[in-house]
């Protein structure tokens, strides 16, 4: 009789994902699904998928899902949670979806303290539409709509979403993590689980910003992309907890 040391989480379907090799969506989907399974709430969960590479997330998470218009996931999630407060509601959004067209929606869902959980995938580029500049694209970083590299004189500066949202009283839990090393993957899962716990205890809005790679649009191998993330993204978007209003109670 053999011992099972690792099993695919019940929170993911058997559909093969379309994500590129080296894409961090795969890991992050797993962390979210495992967290929901371990908290015993998978059957009560309703997720909201974005417009972006994760537009097909509704095929990969094994729970009820809504596919939302670009940027509107926090508003859709608000509608769901207000209609069904006993359910667990999460949004899964990229940097274009959340920080560009959805900037108003995320700010106000957080400000209102909506009891939802947002998983924010920050890879500093628009993946799905072919590599355009994102609000989190770094200075000098090349993109389809910044062919010479992001120039602050023309396109301003990248946005530190977590720092911004942490100023809102309705946002009870704001943490930035990465999935570039096994240690960071474990820390990311802890943060994601805590963000869901904030929702379950009725405290309020929780968001986990996950620094992610896009080897395809960055033009790097998977390993190079992780190194680029560490060297360039982490100094600009430091990892750590930016707000945890009830830390003392743990």
């Amino acid at each position: 009789m053999s011992t099972v040391v690792f099993k695919k989480t019940e929170g993911l379907t058997d559909k093969t994902t379309h994500y590129c090799p080296g894409c961090t969506h795969g890991i992050i989907h797993r962390l979210v699904a495992e967290s929901l399974e371990e908290l015993g709430v998978l059957g009560d969960t309703i997720g909201v998928a974005p417009v972006g590479c994760a537009v097909l997330a509704y095929k990969y998470f094994k729970c009820d899902m809504h596919q939302a218009a670009h940027g509107r996931a926090p508003a859709v999630a608000t509608g769901i949670k207000r209609a069904r407060p006993e359910n667990v509601v999460f949004t899964y959004q990229g940097d274009g979806d959340l920080a560009s067209i959805g900037a108003a929606e995320i700010v106000h869902a957080a400000a209102r303290g909506e009891k939802i959980t947002t998983i924010f995938i920050n890879n500093a580029i628009y993946g799905m539409t072919g590599g355009q500049m994102a609000p989190t694209t770094l200075i000098g970083q090349k993109a389809a709509t910044a062919p010479l590299g992001r120039d602050p004189k023309l396109a301003g500066y990248p946005i530190k979403v977590s720092e911004m949202l942490a100023t809102l009283e309705g946002a009870k839990f704001v943490e930035r993590v990465s999935v570039d090393t096994p240690i960071n993957v474990r820390k990311a899962k802890k943060a994601i689980k805590r963000a869901f716990e904030i929702q379950l205890s009725g405290e309020g809005f929780g968001i986990v910003e996950v620094l992610s790679t896009c080897p395809t649009n960055w033009g790097m191998s998977a390993i190079e992309a992780l190194e680029w993330l560490r060297k360039n993204m982490m100094p600009k978007y430091p990892l750590g907890n930016l707000r945890d209003d009830n830390k003392g109670d743990n």
Partner: peptide
């Protein structure tokens, strides 16, 4: 090409099979 079934998507996903 891509692991996305059908060709009618804009997602620039690459298949690991390219390796």
């Amino acid at each position: 090409s891509s692991d996305l079934e059908g060709e009618a998507a804009d997602i620039p996903s690459i298949s690991a099979r390219i390796q």
